[in-house]
């Protein structure tokens, strides 16, 4: 590619190591030889146009979806060939924030956040309560503990999902668009939270987001994905000022350039019937 992809550290201290990832979903080629390494203890942002497969990448990392080819190593384990049991073992150490929150609608906010703890840790009720309330306090929703998910707004649900993702203090947290639907105050709180988790507990974070300003505040490095490949990687400020067609177009927001804005489609004029259809 046009930009040298910086090898961030040797593979040994990379918590997540993706090699030559190839995936096809339906008729669309999502990944075509993606390479990615996320160093332990870093905050890495993944950016890319909508529909490039950022969510799909996170699903590969957690084994929810198996790629057609390639290797995905998380904490030294090869996710693509892991047994179901081992996969669940690995997932106990990973927090995941779903793009659409995915709260369990049967349970209250409190029980949603408490769910992973109840399943995997035998904690005294008192301690569990404290942990859950602490996490809810961190996202500013301690007062909403008794509400049901159906009574929350989109942004509130997102923050509850965030609290649930971090409740176990995992080694790796994957955030799929954590900033969507947050007001500036909540956004700042969440940013502070991500940073604190990373700095104080050393939790590695991978966050998929589109908010450049927010990313600049927390991310150590940014990976730009387009056309099924990693097209640029580097510190946020570096990348923004980098002079490559990919970064220039993506951060400049131009519709035209190497990064496709349009979903693959036949020629516009042909489809509308202007070209070729005429006698």
């Amino acid at each position: 590619m046009t930009v040298a992809v910086a090898e961030s550290g040797s593979p040994s201290d990379a918590l997540v190591q993706v090699r030559d990832l190839r995936t096809r979903l339906g008729a669309k080629l999502i990944f075509d030889g993606l390479e990615l390494a996320v160093p332990r203890g870093s905050v890495t942002a993944i950016m890319g146009p909508s529909g490039t497969g950022k969510t799909t990448l996170l699903r590969h990392l957690t084994g929810q979806l198996r790629p057609d080819a390639g290797s995905v190593r998380v904490d030294g384990e090869e996710v693509t060939t892991l047994s179901r049991r081992a996969l669940f073992g690995l997932r106990e150490r990973i927090g995941y924030l779903f793009q659409n929150s995915a709260l369990l609608t049967d349970f209250s906010v409190f029980e949603n956040v408490a769910f992973p703890l109840r399943q995997h840790a035998r904690l005294p009720e008192e301690l569990l309560r404290n942990i859950v309330l602490t996490k809810l306090q961190a996202v500013g929703l301690r007062g909403a503990a008794r509400l049901m998910p159906s009574e929350l707004s989109g942004g509130m649900a997102r923050r509850v999902a965030l609290a649930r993702a971090i409740v176990f203090d995992p080694m790796l947290i994957l955030y799929d668009e954590p900033f969507v639907g947050l007001d500036p105050i909540a956004l700042n709180q969440v940013l502070r939270l991500i940073r604190t988790l990373n700095r104080t507990l050393g939790i590695t974070s991978i966050l998929v987001a589109h908010e450049l300003a927010a990313i600049r505040q927390v991310a150590d490095s940014v990976c730009l994905i387009a056309n099924g490949k990693l097209v640029a990687q580097g510190a946020p400020d570096e990348l923004v000022h980098q002079d490559s067609p990919w970064t220039r177009q993506f951060f400049g927001g131009d519709a035209d350039g190497p990064v496709p804005f349009h979903y693959p489609a036949p020629d516009y004029a042909t489809e509308l019937g202007f070209a070729g259809a005429r006698p």
Binding site: Q64, F88, G89, R91, A102, T105, P116, Q119, R164
Partner: peptide, 18 residues
Amino acid sequence: GLMRATDQLDAMGMMAVD
């Protein structure tokens, strides 16, 4: 079906609950 549609099943899987 709705749990599947709203990713709740995936969310459980991600919380290491089969």
